[in-house]
């Protein structure tokens, strides 16, 4: 487990950031902060906000943490909170938010996949079929997360609920118990789960798996070109990952 020990300083920083976000969310409430808070939740690169000290004068903005699809702040915040529940930060390493999964999903929804450009879309759509495209399913789904949260918890947005409350709501989505127009909540959940894992583990070129941290946590070597040197190894061999961006063709 030496790999995990190596990562612990980063983990500490991420944990504290997450705690900060949760606390701010709770005290500030739903509407007020808008963009500023949202950009933090979305995992904008480790800014100097709360780990000031040695980085005060040098703040890096990661421009890939900019949304293409989601317009309303609270839609994206509900999405972010839901992805973090699916793949939470823990002792092993970062969760979906720190890995950039919400921004990954945002970009995917703005891509041909978001409009099901490669799917057959001719009607009629029969009973049990979903006539909505992926971007419509996600938009309705995240809005429904907030709607249910607000209804069940006195107007509190999904992101501001306790973890237990959030899990209860997401579970009811998974079980298909929530009414969403023209799509089962189970279909939305299943798509959200799949997209979250894609955001954690696809090549970083898509905006998730930031710094290959998903791969490092999973000890996956990435886009290697050959494993012929390791074929006879009986012990596990840890290989530093490489992304497609790290290839020189």
């Amino acid at each position: 487990m030496s790999e995990q020990e190596k990562k612990s300083p980063i983990l500490d920083k991420r944990s504290s950031r997450r705690t900060f976000i949760k606390n701010s969310g709770l005290t500030v409430g739903g509407l007020v902060l808008g963009g500023a808070l949202g950009s933090l939740i979305g995992g904008k690169t480790e800014t100097s906000t709360h780990t000031a000290g040695n980085e005060t004068s040098h703040t890096t903005i990661d421009y890939s943490d900019t949304r293409l699809f989601f317009v309303r702040q609270k839609d994206f915040e509900a999405l972010s909170a839901a992805t973090e529940l699916i793949y939470p930060e823990d002792d092993n390493g970062p969760g979906a938010v720190a890995l950039g999964a919400p921004y990954f999903i945002d970009k995917q929804l703005a891509s041909p996949w978001g409009t099901n450009a490669d799917d057959y879309r001719k009607g009629p759509f029969k009973k049990g079929e979903v006539p909505l495209n992926n971007s419509e399913i996600f938009l309705q789904g995240v809005r429904k997360l907030n709607e249910v949260a607000e209804k069940e918890h006195d107007g509190t947005l999904f992101k501001d609920l306790t973890e237990e409350q959030q899990i209860a709501i997401l579970t009811s989505f998974q079980n298909g118990e929530v009414e969403i127009e023209l799509v089962s909540s189970a279909v939305f959940f299943s798509s959200l789960r799949a997209a979250t894992l894609q955001g954690c583990f696809s090549d970083p070129l898509y905006g998730g798996n930031k710094d290959m941290a998903g791969w490092k946590m999973k000890e996956f070597p990435g886009a290697q070109m050959s494993y012929t040197s390791y074929l006879d190894k009986e012990e596990f061999v840890l290989i530093e990952p490489i992304s497609l961006g790290g290839h020189k063709h």
Partner: peptide
């Protein structure tokens, strides 16, 4: 081509169903 999302998940080499 070593891109799981593009080839294995989104099936880049396959017939599109459009």
């Amino acid at each position: 081509g070593h891109d799981e999302l593009k080839y294995n998940v989104r099936k880049e080499l396959m017939q599109k169903l459009t």
